[in-house]
Write a protein that binds this DNA or RNA. Structure first.
Lengths: 339, 339
DNA sequence: CTGTTAGCGCTTTCAG
DNA sequence: CTGAAAGCGCTAACAG
């Protein structure tokens, strides 16, 4: 390994000068800079991060925490897309990114602890928001810089988070169904432990209320991905005496499952039943029918959270903030007008 | 930050002794170990990785490189799933994982260079295999430990790689179509720059040959994901004087797009046309119809590549090897018997 | 079994 | 504008 000393020797200056050239210190003459840089190139010198981090007490690295991966929900294209968004600003800022995927909450917690205690990273991004989350609590207690994608369960004024206005999005997309003449509208969501599910559901409820539609018993369902792609949800809904004519589904990937269950019940979308959804991942435009869905701008969600985190690590008393990314409804073919 | 010295002071021993109990050196008495550990707990001591890496000249970290993310192909559930596999062994071994996502090959290369030159990682996993890849060449030239998921374009005896036998899988799944009475069989693949596409295609060709079926002009198509989910592919195929009755599609996500294009042409799967595919990601079981596809064991692919890489970093002259993960065809509903 | 010492590669005062 | 020296937190000979 070629070190700063080697460069110093070759260029005939002291190690500290080389260090200053690396930092592009203005007090070094252009001449010596040129000389030193030439030597660096010749020798193929590259600074060693560990040595640097050790003295700088900063790592220019951030940790990204995926939700627990015990179930198939992680196969959601949401994740690669948000990583891409994070990666873009990370790269731009010459930071690096540690990824943690754990099966269980315990595993995740232990990885996060290692990251923060061991000074692996300067800050952490949580790619999920769930209730009673030990990881969140740990980070808060430690006063370690972190940002959350989604809405914190509590202390939301102290935790920097990047989110959509999911309540409003839920309300608006439900309203769309209502505008199209639907009154019997069901809701199918992922786990209620996820704040995002709750928000979207609240929006759905609010829209019904506003329209003076009575919430119907049994119209709200929460399904885990694993359960055969929503079979039970659809079975239940369709066994009702008056099944819904419209469905608000909290995630495109769930929608895909619902779509196919619906068809197996002989129900055509949108002729027999309409469906709206959230996220606008690539697959939502290639399903049959293409989904009317809320584009939440996943990439931007990721990019902004990385940006906010970096700012925070650079300036410890940057105030906590809430960053709301606008959404946009993409109208496609999964909703029909009810006469 | 609490250091080894603080622990030493509190427990009344020297720093080196503390270091030894961290390493669980057998030459330290159980008594002192106990004493020291108690002090560590009290003070909340955790070793600093950077200091440790600096002297150890090893980072216990590996870099994971995603393919260029300029297009939507990254939204493939393949990636979260393989990350999960990698993550499991990483966690087990108490390693950590750096993730690199770059838009362009240039960006990726620069990230990889930073990783290796800056001693960020002990080794690298490439999550793709493509022709004329600068990143691969760089890693080879540097003699830096890396493993590739997929088949190397060249030097495949020198590069440790983890792969399926995609040629055989392609052959076998095509054979299945033939067994079901199909003779006019088309192939729709992703980019030909990807080795995986080529292998699966070779298998397809081999099966045809073996069955004495003449390869038909215009039956082989390569489509980029972006292009409206395979619209052009299907348009082309269906405009042929004798369109195929069966389709081999090189990726489940592409299949999803094809499925919906087919339907928009009034073609039902599998009644009018059969389709087989690869990967067996979650969505392939919730499409309509559920796909007959090759389960390539993505998770295992990831886990094995991480395992191989760690071994390699631990023992520099571990020989290069090829690790073939078995596949299994999952028969579902996208193929029909032709009388 | 344990302490002393040197040093990993780099940055940063402090001098000059 | 540049050099000398100290030190980041840890490990690893070398003594004892």
């Amino acid at each position: 390994m070629v070190t700063i000393k080697d460069v110093a020797k070759v260029s005939g200056v002291s190690p500290s000068t080389v260090s200053r050239v690396i930092a592009n210190n203005p007090r070094i003459s252009e001449d010596t800079k040129k000389k030193v840089r030439k030597a660096m190139k010749e020798l193929g010198y590259h600074p060693n991060v560990n040595a640097r981090n050790l003295v700088a007490k900063s790592t220019k690295a951030i940790g990204v925490i995926m939700p627990s991966s015990a179930n198939v929900a992680l196969q959601n294209p949401f994740f690669p897309e948000i990583l891409r968004g994070i990666g873009s600003v990370i790269h731009e800022a010459e930071y690096s990114m540690y990824l943690s995927t754990g099966e269980t909450e315990k595993e995740i917690l232990s990885e996060v602890q290692r990251m923060v205690y061991g000074s692996y990273v300067d800050g952490v991004i949580l790619l999920y928001s769930r209730i009673n989350d030990k990881v969140t609590n740990f980070l808060r207690e430690q006063g370690f810089p972190f940002v959350m994608v989604g809405k914190p369960q509590e202390h939301d004024t102290e935790i920097t988070h990047v989110d959509n206005d999911n309540v409003r999005a839920g309300k608006e997309i439900t309203q769309h169904l209502i505008d199209m003449g639907h009154e019997k509208i069901g809701f199918i969501g992922g786990s209620r432990d996820l704040l995002v599910t709750r928000d979207r559901e609240s929006g759905y409820v609010a829209a019904l209320e506003k329209a003076g539609i009575q919430e119907c018993e049994g119209y709200k369902i929460h399904t885990e991905f694993l359960k055969s792609g929503g079979r039970e949800a659809v079975e239940h809904l369709m066994s009702l005496s008056t099944p819904p004519s419209g469905l608000v589904v909290s995630d495109d990937l769930i929608s895909l499952g619902i779509l196919s269950m619906l068809e197996s019940y002989g129900l055509r979308v949108p002729q027999d039943i309409s469906l709206v959804s959230f996220n606008n991942v690539y697959l939502s435009e290639i399903t049959r029918p293409a989904l009317t869905t809320v584009d939440i701008q996943i990439y931007t969600l990721g990019a902004q959270s990385a940006k906010a985190l970096i700012e925070k690590t650079l300036n410890k008393n940057e105030p906590a903030k809430r960053i709301i990314i606008p959404y946009e409804i993409v109208y496609r073919d999964s909703v029909s007008q009810l006469s």
